[in-house]
């Protein structure tokens, strides 16, 4: 069930630019139905944590002729949209992160779009579109090769 605008307003009461954040979140979840808003505590590098909203789920990425649902998590700071979201790829237990220019070993995503973030030129929809293009060239996660089960041992 989709989260309503009123529910989002309640979730985002502590956000400084709540209406802008609600408006953008709505357009993301309408367009990318596999992303949903979730409140959770985000732990910063200095150990402090804050209750923030993330958009968590998958985005469709086309790679070598197939479409994959790449799991991501976009954290919105309470100063959003005047600061860029903090973005991660979230590998499942069957996936492994492919570190590279755009992703580090923790899954944190680095993109010029985030680095040069400037409201209102930058927004979540634009960011997701960039991710879809960049990840389509260089996927941030791969499936782990399946380990074949050992031969069953026979009991005499």
């Amino acid at each position: 069930m989709a989260v309503s605008e009123n529910q989002l307003k309640k979730m985002l009461t502590k956000y400084k630019y709540r209406d802008l954040t609600v408006q953008e979140t709505v357009s993301v979840i309408v367009q990318y139905k596999d992303l949903k808003p979730v409140m959770d505590s985000y732990v910063f590098n200095d150990g402090t944590s804050r209750e923030l909203m993330s958009l968590t789920g998958t985005i469709p990425v086309s790679y070598k002729g197939n479409t994959y649902n790449i799991p991501i998590c976009l954290w919105l700071l309470d100063t959003y949209p005047f600061n860029p979201p903090i973005c991660f790829v979230k590998p499942t237990s069957t996936m492994t992160i492919k570190t590279g220019k755009h992703v580090d070993a923790n899954g944190k995503i680095y993109l010029p779009y985030l680095h040069e973030w400037k409201h209102p030129l930058s927004d979540l929809i634009g960011l997701i579109q960039v991710m879809i293009v960049v990840f389509g060239e260089e996927p941030p996660v791969f499936s782990r090769p399946t380990i074949s089960a050992p031969y069953p041992s026979y009991q005499a």
Binding site: D34, T58, Y63, N69, T92, M95, T96, P139, V141, F142
Partner: peptide, 14 residues
């Protein structure tokens, strides 16, 4: 699963 899509990734290139 409540409308969620199962995450998928390309097969390992190795």
């Amino acid at each position: 699963l409540n409308g969620g899509t199962i995450p998928t990734a390309p097969p390992s290139y190795t």
